[in-house]
Computed example of a mutant assay.
Amino acid sequence: MGFLNWWKSSAALASEPDPRPEPRGQNNYLLIVLDSCRFDSLLAANPKHLLKLGPLEKRWSYASWTAPAHYNLLMGLLPHTSPIHVFASEHYKQDYLRYNERLGTRQPIEFKHLLPHLYLPTLLKHQLGYTTHAMVSMPVLNPSTLLNRDFDSYRLMPQHNDMAAMVEQLRFEPDRPSFYLLNVGETHYPYALPDEDPSLWPRISGVNGVLKRLD
């Protein structure tokens, strides 16, 4: 499963009162998942603009299926490097510490700050004052699933393969940072663009294929 981990600076904080906590994060944070995109397929595509965001790393997802893989991501566990002779707890500790760089927080973030919920949107919204949003392509991630917790907005897109529609709807507030989860479906089997005729696609197996045939 491919993903992009990208952050940028937000505007200065406004002085108007807000019921949410005072923002402690300084950066907007976008977590972009290229659903089912293999590492070797991405290399074969020879991306030019994507690599401008940072170095490309080969990592492994904690789960091989879309739904549980996204639960791991929203626990704050990004795909791992599969280090050898390293305790899992030590790897988690170091990985969570990197959120200080990603979010630009005023106070250090450690694993204990995710307790007891162990859910990144909960931390971002209720402790760091973020607005939280999700736009997903796969039906197994729809708003009725358990993933939709502590999101200000959570939307299953009308088309599973239209990232451009997601980009058009991105909004960043001037007074506090935003978190966006974007689950992109163009890279899902079969690779397809929004203007292509679905009747020409091969048969889709798996849960998504089953859902498409339900009444």
Rank of each mutant, 00 (worst) to 15 (best):
K58S: 03
H160M: 05
D197A: 09
S10N: 14
L147R: 11
L50Y: 01
M157Q: 15
R171M: 14
H126Y: 07
Q107E: 15
Y96H: 11
P79Y: 00
I32C: 09
D35K: 02
A12W: 05
L74Q: 04
M138A: 14
H160Q: 03
S9P: 01
S137R: 11
R38K: 06
R59L: 10
A14Y: 03
L97Y: 07
Y130F: 15
Y154A: 07
L51P: 00
D40N: 10
L97F: 08
W60A: 15
H70K: 06
H85T: 04
P116C: 11
N46R: 11
A69E: 05
S61W: 07
T131H: 10
P139G: 04
D40L: 05
L34F: 11
P68E: 01
R20P: 01
P17H: 10
S178I: 07
N142R: 08
S205W: 03
L53T: 02
K93G: 02
H70L: 15
F172P: 01
Y29W: 14
N46Q: 13
I32Q: 02
S9T: 07
A67R: 10
F87L: 12
Q159S: 13
V210H: 08
L141K: 02
P68N: 01
F151R: 01
T132H: 05
H49K: 09
Y29H: 07
Q107K: 12
R171S: 15
K112A: 06
R203M: 10
E173S: 09
P194N: 00
N161D: 12
N5L: 08
L181W: 09
A14V: 07
K58N: 05
L128C: 08
V167T: 07
S144P: 00
D95V: 10
N27D: 05
P79M: 00
L200G: 04
Y130E: 09
H85P: 00
N148W: 04
E57D: 13
L115T: 06
R149C: 15
L78K: 00
P19E: 15
A12K: 11
R203H: 12
L97Q: 15
Q26P: 00
T145K: 07
P17Q: 13
C37T: 07
S36W: 03
A45M: 06
V136A: 06
P68M: 00
G104V: 08
K8E: 14
A11P: 05
P68K: 01
D215V: 06
V136H: 06
